[in-house]
Computed example of a mutant assay.
Amino acid sequence: MSEPFLYEFLYRGRPAGSAEAPAWHVVLGQHVTPPGASAAQFVASAALTPAQAEAAGFPLAAVLAGIDAAALAGRDAAVAEAEAAREERDAAVAERDDLAAQLAARAPAAGLPAVSDRQFFQALAEGGAIDPGEALAAVMTGTLPARIEVAVAALPSAEQFAARMLLSGATAFERGHPMVAQLGAALGYDDKALDALWAAAAAL
């Protein structure tokens, strides 16, 4: 048998100036295991008058204190839940902003035009990445410079043919093409260096 607890509280107010005093009553609850039963059952009392409630150990002050404590506990739980939701939202926003910053850092510089194959290989030669003779061969016959051939050979086998077709047959190269970053990394170019290479090539 559990201890009795406050199950229901009803307060009846009166309008201002009424000669009738406000009234209240409580209903107590208790879990009781009847003889022969294996599980406890909930039992509610009848509505108790203030005097009966006080005699049962539930004076008005204790009743109101219990209601206040329950209400404050609910408020505190709601505040904690809202704070956790705010923290989760802030973490998601921070993660989104960080990802956006990373993508912006990796994106090619705005306004970089496509460059011709001649401009591309000439810029590589003038930057010392390949020999001038290799640049001429690449433009005239489509023969890939040795360093670029090594970079292509390092790609997954399923991507090598497309890379060779692009590098040997394209007449223009886009900075934003996804293969540019792959091959650039193999040649030792990071994003900033590739942007600089494209800017230099566009000026040739």
Rank of each mutant, 00 (worst) to 15 (best):
L204C: 05
A78S: 09
V150F: 02
D190Y: 12
V32Y: 03
L194N: 04
S18V: 06
V63D: 14
G184P: 00
Q30G: 00
E54S: 13
F9V: 05
A193D: 14
F5G: 00
A151I: 02
S45E: 07
D131C: 02
R118Q: 10
T143L: 14
Y7I: 00
A46C: 04
A151E: 00
A151P: 00
R175F: 11
A23V: 15
R118Y: 13
P178W: 08
R164P: 00
Y189K: 01
A107P: 14
A77S: 03
Q52P: 00
E83C: 02
E54L: 03
Q182T: 13
G142P: 00
E174L: 15
A78R: 10
E54M: 03
S168C: 03
Q52N: 00
F173A: 06
L99V: 08
A100L: 15
E87A: 14
E3Y: 10
D195W: 08
A100C: 09
P59V: 09
A82K: 07
A186M: 15
L99C: 02
A65E: 15
A78V: 02
A163D: 04
A53R: 02
G176P: 12
Y11W: 10
P22S: 08
A62V: 11
D190I: 08
P178C: 09
A199N: 05
L187R: 09
V43A: 13
A129E: 15
R106Y: 06
V43L: 07
L28K: 00
A146E: 15
R175A: 15
R96W: 13
F42M: 13
P59A: 04
A44P: 13
F9E: 01
A69H: 09
Y7R: 02
E8H: 04
V180E: 10
D190S: 05
P113E: 01
P178E: 07
E3K: 14
